Structure formats: C-alpha cells, structure tokens
Simulated assay, not measured.
Amino acid sequence: MARENDLAGRARSIGRGLAVTAAVGAAAGAAATGYGLWEKNQFVLREETLPVLPAGFGPFRVLHLSDIHFVPGQDTKAEWLASLAELKPDLVVNTGDNLSHTKAVDPVLAALRPLMEFPGVFVPGSNDYFAPRLKNPAGYLLGPSSVPKDPGTLDWPRLRAGFGMAGWVDLTNRCQSVVLKGLRFDFSGVDDPHLGLEQYAGWPRGTTGQDATPHLRVAVVHAPYQRVLDHFTEDGADLLLAGHTHGGQICLPGYGALLANCDIPTWRAKGLNNWESNGRTTPVNVSGGIGTSRFAPIRIACRPEAVLLTLTSRS
C-alpha cells in the first residue's frame, strides 16, 4: 500500500511538473509573439558606404527598398515609407514583394508616391504576382518555400504600370542605361529566381567604345540564389542588390538568421558582403526587408529596414 501511495504521489508530482512546464512554455510563446508583433513596426534605416564609383564621381545615394508586403490599414508602415523621401536619394531601387493582399496596390502606390519623385528601378518578387497563403511557419525550417500550385493572383500589371508612369524603370529580364548625376548606370535585372523566372538580358549596348567611358554596372534581383549571384558576378557587375530573405525574420540574438528562404548561407541573409565566383568579386547588398507575410506578422531580433547606400569613388 505504501508503495502504491508513493507511486501515486510521484505521478501527481510529475503531472504538476509537466503542467508548470507547459504553462511556462505557453507564457514564453505568448511573450515572444507579443514582442514579434511589436518589432515588426520598429522600422530602421541601415546605412552603408561603398567605394565602387569611377574616379571623380560621387557621392551617390541609393535607397534600397524590398519586401514591403503591404496590407491595407498598415498606416504606420505607410507613413514611414513616405518619410523616406526626406533622405532625397539619387536613386530608389525596389527589389520586389511589395504586396501581401489583393487590395494593396492603391495604398502601396500612395505610400511610395513621395519616393517616386526620384529616379528609380524595380523588379518583382513572387508576392507581387501571388498572394501569400496560410501555412505552418515551421515549414520554412525544412527549406525554401514552395511555389503555390493554385495561388491567388495579385494585380502586378497595375502596380508595374504605377511605377512606370512615375518614371521608374522596369528591369524584369531587361537591361537599360540611365545617366544620373553625369554618370552612366548600366542596369540589368531579372524576374524572380524563387519562381525560376530569371532570364539574363546582359548589359546595355550602345555606341562603340562605351566600356571605355565611366560607368557603373548594377544588377537587380529579388531572390539572391547562388546561381544568380554567380552569373552577375562572372558577368562583371559592380554592385548587386537583392531582397527576399527578410533577414531571416525570426533570428536568435547573438547568432542571427536561422534560415534565408533560398540557398545562400544564413549569415548572408542580411547585409553588405562580397560574393566571389570564378575569380571575380561583386559587393552584394541583401535587404532585411520592410514587411512580413500577413499570415506571419512578427519579427524577432530582425527589425524591418530600408537601406541607404552611399556610393563613393574607388580612389
């Protein structure tokens, strides 16, 4: 009898321990979710300086936007986006995933209208074409997200037209030269590699001997898959701008991103670093992004960001 009482007591003790553990875990999860909901609106501006311009040119300020994932009613985000016009950039580069809702085109264009007063270029991401879906966030830990089989279609043609009417240059599998502050910028962009839509257009070709005149080659892409970084690096890009990763979105303090949602190493999921391929090197800026999927609206240890790159002379 004593033995049975002892076993029963131990069972009750284990049960209480499990209940306490579950309660603590639930409380910690709720606290983390609450923090993540708060952090997603703690917008920051990351500033970088990069000596890539030909001698005698610069400084030149590039505002890099990516992964806005706009949802109607995101007034704080809209106000912050509009306020970036106070930076007076020389160029705005938008690397895609502007939308996260079928009714987001008009409000995101309104939020970006002050910035569309400046020269700009853009490429699309998958969430400019397809609406996000409700799914298990843990699936991202198993590898890059899959292409939806029956996705909701977003009004990318109208968003692209809005950008184009403002004078921003569409670089979807295209190349184009633009003269800015007296320097020729040669742009080359691709459609979203996450969807396997990239087709390389090379660099703009003009007059004979154009490569002998001062210029800068800038590659623009949404998802920084290694095959794309390799191509543009080997093809002589002076700078490559990308997004897509959200900087990992949920990171461990002191460690960083747990995933990149593509095949680059997680330590490259956000920031400015060099990519090397076949003996050539290109600086790559991967934006940590401004938004989240509306079905996973949290960020932890990874604040939403725009990036201001100040380009200076190489010498």
Score class of each variant (00 low, 15 high):
190 V>C: 14
132 P>E: 14
67 D>M: 00
179 V>M: 13
122 F>A: 13
123 V>E: 14
144 P>G: 07
228 V>T: 10
121 V>Q: 08
264 I>W: 15
313 S>M: 11
13 S>P: 02
178 V>E: 11
52 V>S: 03
150 D>E: 10
175 C>D: 10
214 P>W: 15
123 V>D: 13
262 C>S: 12
74 Q>A: 12
36 G>K: 13
94 N>Q: 09
112 L>T: 02
258 L>T: 07
168 W>F: 12
86 E>S: 08
184 R>D: 08
307 V>W: 03
311 L>I: 04
40 K>P: 00
222 H>M: 07
134 L>N: 14
191 D>C: 04
200 Y>F: 14
51 P>F: 05
166 A>W: 00
127 N>W: 08
309 L>Q: 01
18 L>E: 12
57 F>R: 00
262 C>Y: 09
73 G>C: 04
7 L>Y: 14
97 D>E: 09
221 V>A: 12
249 Q>T: 05
139 G>M: 01
2 A>C: 08
201 A>E: 11
195 L>F: 02
254 G>D: 06
310 T>G: 07
135 K>I: 00
297 P>Q: 13
251 C>T: 15
33 T>N: 00
97 D>G: 04
239 L>P: 08
188 S>R: 04
74 Q>G: 10
171 L>K: 07
259 L>V: 09
115 L>W: 03
80 W>E: 05
190 V>R: 03
49 T>P: 00
212 A>P: 05
3 R>H: 11
188 S>H: 07
139 G>A: 01
148 P>R: 04
122 F>D: 13
266 T>F: 14
207 T>V: 03
311 L>A: 04
83 S>Q: 12
90 D>K: 01
102 T>M: 02
159 L>A: 03
30 A>I: 15
101 H>I: 13
256 G>Y: 04
207 T>Q: 11
44 V>N: 09
213 T>E: 15
62 V>L: 12
244 H>G: 12
185 F>G: 07
300 I>F: 10
163 F>K: 01
143 G>I: 03
44 V>H: 12
294 R>A: 13
87 L>H: 08
137 P>V: 03
125 G>W: 08
49 T>L: 07
177 S>L: 04
38 W>P: 05
23 A>N: 02
252 L>I: 15
9 G>Q: 13
89 P>G: 11
268 R>N: 06
210 Q>D: 14
306 A>C: 10
289 G>S: 06
176 Q>C: 02
